[in-house]
Design a protein around this nucleic acid. Structure first.
Lengths: 189, 189
DNA sequence: GAAACAGCTTGATCTAGATCAATTATTTCA
DNA sequence: TGAAATAATTGATCTAGATCAAGCTGTTTC
């Protein structure tokens, strides 16, 4: 359970055994069944979660009832409603499991203590957020620059693995397309 | 020149005088005339810049010649092509000054040294990137969820100050709209 | 093992916003 | 100050992709 976790951390920072023990103590392992919720929109998001097995999705439902997917979180990824987690506001997203999943969760007060007690964790999260920011930026530009087909081709090239695990209608939502449009454009490829 | 800078840092972290002196030594003050470039698309982006006066924009020009604005950076903001800065790839964005500006620049090797020598700077940038990430996420969701008018109303409410300084056609580009569409929808408000 | 459901496809129609083009402000700076 | 460049408006037209609707799998469930 913690193997993948420390493996992931040690790609960005170096940790000794006592630090690892301390870090461990801040996290709580949790199992989620398929369709089980980690965060429900409108409630405070008290967890940040590292996915060690499975696949979660973070999404928002708009007034018209359309689902907009913010993030797919497979193994090795973090997920949370960051705004709610760090600012105590209610969450905008719901997060649930698309597959049976194993996760490690940390609360916001423990997150604060973790970074204060082990400053190198600030570096870890600085690097993590830095990379997420770059990715998110690309997605935003793509969303304004590319047409439906280009968006699909792009994800096909860069996230081929993920696509196999995600139903097509949710992939469409992630790309900001209707399910019908995605279905149609796939024929022409 | 450094007042705004340390003011900004000290909203997130505490620094003593010797740390401030050391931090200062990593940065180079620079003046940009209106229309002067900090980064040119296709070249490596070797700087990350803190804006202490003025206004910059980061943007990309697509194959059709349309300008897509990624970021407006007024006083108190950071700007860079983060992907290029941190990974040594060529930059996707150009960055230039929309007004005469004063900035503080740091190179990527100095950035690395800064965070290694003063670990609390990792915390500062963790918090900075964390907030940017939340903002960027919101913009992405808005881009897929809201129509033209909702996008404009949103920015009008949250960035009223910026709007006054930015020509309408660039604001349209930032929102992912054509200049004509923005002009037309403003009449109905 | 039938019923309910979830996901995918296909067709017909509609529309928000893009594009093209011309006109009118507004800045800029020689 | 006034010519040139830049920005904003307005009109006419076009189109990518949404929406609505129906039928077609395959798969979960009790």
């Amino acid at each position: 359970m913690y193997d993948i976790f420390f493996n992931h951390l040690e790609k960005k920072i170096q940790l000794n055994e006592s630090e690892k023990e301390l870090i461990k103590s801040f996290f709580l392992p949790k199992k989620l069944k398929k369709r089980q919720f980690l965060v429900v929109e409108g409630h405070p998001c008290t967890f940040m979660a590292f996915v060690s097995k499975g696949l979660l999705k973070a999404y928002n439902i708009d007034e018209k009832g359309n689902e907009h997917i913010n993030q797919f979180a497979p193994e090795g990824w973090w997920t949370s409603d960051m705004n709610s987690f760090f600012s105590e506001e209610i969450s905008f997203y719901s997060i649930d499991a698309m597959e049976d999943s194993d996760i490690l969760v940390i609360t916001s007060t423990d997150f604060e203590n973790l970074t204060l007690q082990i400053p190198i964790m600030d570096r870890y999260f600085r690097l993590l957020f830095q990379n997420s920011l770059i990715t998110k930026e690309r997605r935003l530009i793509s969303s304004n620059t590319h047409n439906a087909e280009e968006k699909y081709r792009h994800i096909l090239k860069n996230n081929a693995d993920l696509i196999k695990r995600v139903p097509q209608n949710l992939l469409a939502s992630y790309l900001g397309l209707s399910a019908e449009t995605l279905s149609r454009l796939k024929k022409n490829i």
